[in-house]
Design a protein around this nucleic acid. Structure first.
Length: 199
DNA sequence: AATATCTTCAACCGCTACCCC
DNA sequence: TGGGGTAGCGGTTGAAGATAT
């Protein structure tokens, strides 16, 4: 029998209060993300670590882009979904400031209906501009670690090529199944700026 | 104005992948 | 190498708000 991830009778459930949010924000600002299991006790929260992680990732993170999806974002989601299927975290990784949960909800509540209305079957990627048959029907090997490169709600995806020392917008590599880690000489400008305190 | 139905989205659950010993 | 613990992912649920009757 699987052990519960936390002592259920001692944890709050349901909507988060402002006070809980603040405690979580304060704790993460002080100690950073990570070690979710021990975080609730350390932060003085009666919540399961999983719940804290989800709340932070989906709602409290300062770099989240709230509000409606733009047309370009919607188009990108459709194209990526045609390639990747329901791999929401990968899709969200290509949409700066968006979370997998948000993308998934948006797909289920808006895009899916829109496509059905247009007479397209959202379950058939080839009707949406994807490959002729479902592209990723079997489990992929784990994504390269550096895919995180695109994650965590980056505000822009510009990269700095250390060889040319120029910034550029990377081509949209939709073929994530073949995506390899970026060369060591390439890092996000934003990260570099943070490191060097450039602005 | 009251009630029913639909829609949206935050949060939960269970499973799997990953990491460490 | 395999077993246990933890993090992350995707599916699902349910409360709250919006809209229709």
């Amino acid at each position: 029998m699987r052990k519960p991830c936390c002592e259920k009778h001692e944890t709050n459930k349901g909507a988060w209060s402002l006070e809980e949010d603040q405690k979580l924000i304060d704790h993460i600002q002080k100690h950073g993300e990570g070690c979710w299991r021990s975080l609730p006790m350390a932060a003085g929260l009666r919540r399961c670590g999983k719940s804290c992680r989800l709340r932070w990732i989906n709602y409290l993170r300062p770099d989240l882009k709230r509000g409606n999806f733009g047309e370009d974002e919607e188009d990108l989601i459709i194209r990526l979904h045609a390639l990747l299927g329901n791999r929401w975290s990968l899709i969200a990784g290509r949409l700066p400031g968006r979370t997998d949960n948000e993308v998934k909800n948006y797909w289920n509540s808006h895009i899916r209906k829109k496509l059905i209305k247009m007479g397209k079957d959202p379950k058939k990627p080839h009707q949406l501009g994807g490959p002729g048959k479902p592209f990723l029907t079997k489990k992929l090997p784990p994504a390269p670690k550096l895919l995180n490169f695109h994650c965590h709600g980056r505000h822009d995806n510009r990269v700095l090529d250390f060889q040319t020392n120029k910034t550029c917008l990377p081509d949209l590599n939709l073929d994530l199944s073949l995506c390899t880690p970026p060369p060591a000489s390439t890092v996000l400008v934003e990260e570099r700026q943070q490191d060097n305190h450039i602005n």
